[in-house]
Computed example of a mutant assay.
Amino acid sequence: MRKIPAALAGALQTGATTLCRCWRLTRQDGVVLGITDHDIDLVIECTAFEANGGFEASAREAEAGLATLGGEVNGALTSDRIRVEDIEAGLYDGAELRCYLVNWQAPALNFLTDVSTLGEIRRIDGRFVAETRNAFHTYDQERGRLFTASCSAELGDNRCGVVLAAPPFRMTGTVASTDGRHKLTATAVANSVTGLFTRGTVTFTSGANAGFSTIIKDHRAGGELVLWQGLVRELAPGDGFSVTAGCDKRFATCRDRFANAANFRGFPFMPAPEFVMTYARPGEGHHQGRPLVR
């Protein structure tokens, strides 16, 4: 049985309604936001909890076991600290949300009622709706090594071994032209092999998008880069960026483009699933049990 702190238990026994909920939101970049359903702002343990009547949390399911359960939080975009561009830039994806029951006459963060992680965030008519997931959602993610034809390593990590710190796999430059959201061209990558930066990452180092990174959908001839996700803030000529190469995780790419076949972390000669449906045909008996691929 869970023990309630003495001060909070005393407040509950008085019968007076002096309780509120406080949500402490910690983004993956370290930014901490506080929101409360109380009618005035509260400051608890150096965190300012902003009064916001539009912030609500749905009922959460609770049951024994390791099932992934969730709910939703939603609110109006009235706080100056919760900005549309930050939501669209993915700064709140994977953020930790802690909910506390607080006696606003003697505020303290000593009774934690729920811990969850923010999942998908949607915007609907000036409001945001965020899916919340409990800690067990991490068990739904793949663990260990999978037997697949494609490589399971990420380009540039310890298992891959390719060094991305210098040209030609990492380039820096400035935007020459852009449509402001989805495309840009730069002379720095104009002479690079077409497709080298497809599935790579571009990080902007100056301008309105400074510090923001996104995935490249397509690297076309002439130094044109098409982004998977449209930028929230306007991109302008002269903005600085750095870009790293991408990989489609095929053995041929690993061997021919990166000369890294020895570190390929897939099984390129593994038969496709439909191989089990094949049957013997006249004249095909010359294998005599030997491997089909050497």
Rank of each mutant, 00 (worst) to 15 (best):
Q105M: 12
D80M: 08
A6H: 11
E45N: 10
E88Y: 05
V115W: 09
Y92T: 01
R83M: 09
C99W: 11
C20A: 14
L8Y: 02
K3M: 10
D125M: 09
D29F: 01
E88T: 08
F55L: 09
A11Y: 02
Y139A: 14
A48M: 11
N134C: 14
F111D: 08
D39F: 11
I40Q: 13
V31R: 12
A6I: 13
V129Y: 14
W23K: 08
L77K: 00
I87L: 15
G30H: 03
G30K: 02
F49T: 04
D80R: 09
T68W: 11
P5T: 07
G53C: 06
A89W: 00
L101Q: 06
I121Q: 05
T18Q: 10
C46A: 13
W104F: 15
F111Q: 10
T26N: 04
R122E: 15
Y92E: 00
T14A: 03
A108W: 04
A64L: 11
W23R: 09
V129S: 13
A48V: 14
A108Q: 14
A67F: 07
V102D: 01
N52R: 07
E56H: 13
Y139R: 13
L69E: 08
A130M: 11
A7F: 06
F128S: 03
I4D: 01
N52A: 12
V102T: 07
A130K: 02
L97E: 03
L97A: 00
T113E: 15
C99N: 10
E45S: 09
S79K: 04
C20D: 03
F55K: 02
L112R: 10
T26D: 04
S116T: 13
F55V: 10
A64K: 05
Q13F: 09
